[in-house]
Amino acid sequence: MPLPLVSAVLAAGLVLSLTLAVTIGPVDLSMRTVWQIAFAKLTGTSGNWTGAQENIVWMLRFPRVLLAAVVGGGLAAVGVAMQAVVRNPLADPYVLGISSGASVGAVLVLGTGAFGFFGIYAVSAGAFAGAVASFTLVFLIAVAGGQLSPLRLVLAGMACGYSLSGLTSLIVLTSENRELARNAMEWMLGSLGGASWSDLGLPSAVLLVGTLWLSLSGRALNALLVGDDTARTLGIDVGRLRVTLFIVLSLLTGVMVAVSGAIGFVGLVIPHVVRMLVGTDHRRVLPVSVLIGAIFLVWVDVVARMAFAPIELPVGVITALLGGPFFVWMLVAQRWKSRDAA
């Protein structure tokens, strides 16, 4: 199926998913009411609905489902590119320890009140600062021996990730704040609750620019996945490309984690699903992964807030419950496929 047609179908599916997700909640809303309110807010007109319905649609549900789409698309795009950069099918957006650094920053804010001048965005600011610090540390360790190789990247990311996770646990266990453990756990498992329109600007811009750049680099990613020697024969500066990709992917991951917490399995599972559907060419895989990742996380968030209502689960709990068994099934299916082919 041609890529434009696939993208158009998935884009329509994303719009439908966003609309249905906004209608689902303790207060039932029709799809017509949802889009009437959205159109009225965008054009400055008014209509026949209550003020409560308008607040629910425009101030509560729309920002949340849109943020879910942005974060899901961003994590899926990073997962696709990360697996090519480190040539490891088990790589995900957090393999470089970025989420561990973000967790340290978020927990410091939750426990000490640091970054208080950011107000309600203090936790996100602290998480992003931690992510940037972790990214810088991993980069310095990985390039200490000269060339930035996939193995050095993974090893540096794992070392920093484990160390920063230990630091997070130390802060939580030694804090006098009795609520810190619960708040830290909820953040580290990922949550989209409390999303507002102001949370969407930076992640959306980063997703748009980052995905566009990665899509234009699709040919280079294809070459990297085959091997550095092959990429060099095609005229690609492998060292420079890997450094640039590392920076772009780290910033993408840092921004997404800062606004949503560490939501796992999206960047690991979605790229494999997409490759099963459209092949391995990154020029096709990247845009399709963004759309499927967005749709996936929108519906995961619906399950997280409705499955045990009025209790709201962290989104990461649902992605783990769904992603783990699915990934195992996919590995078993590929094994049987390889056996049949033999």
Rank of each mutant, 00 (worst) to 15 (best):
T233R: 14
V255C: 01
D237W: 08
G239T: 15
L252Q: 14
I247S: 07
T244Q: 14
T233K: 12
T253L: 06
L241T: 09
I247G: 02
M256W: 09
A258C: 06
V243C: 02
R240S: 13
L249P: 13
S250D: 09
V248G: 06
V259L: 10
F246N: 01
S250N: 01
V248C: 12
R242F: 11
L245W: 06
L251M: 13
V238M: 07
L234M: 15
A231I: 09
M256S: 08
L245I: 05
G254P: 08
V243R: 15
V243F: 05
L252H: 01
V259F: 15
L251T: 07
T253R: 03
V255T: 08
R232C: 09
V259M: 10
L245V: 07
A258S: 15
S250K: 10
V259P: 04
L234I: 04
G254D: 08
R240N: 08
L252R: 04
V259C: 10
T244F: 00
V243S: 05
R232P: 11
S250C: 13
L252M: 15
R242T: 04
G254S: 07
V248D: 08
L252N: 05
S250V: 03
R242P: 02
I247R: 03
T230D: 15
I247W: 13
L249D: 05
L252G: 06
V259W: 11
L245D: 11
L251P: 10
S260K: 07
R240L: 12
A231V: 07
G235Q: 08
R242N: 07
S260I: 03
L252P: 01
L251N: 02
V255G: 09
R232K: 15
G239K: 02
G254V: 00
R232W: 03
T233I: 08
A258V: 11
L241E: 04
V259S: 06
R232S: 12
D237S: 14
V255R: 02
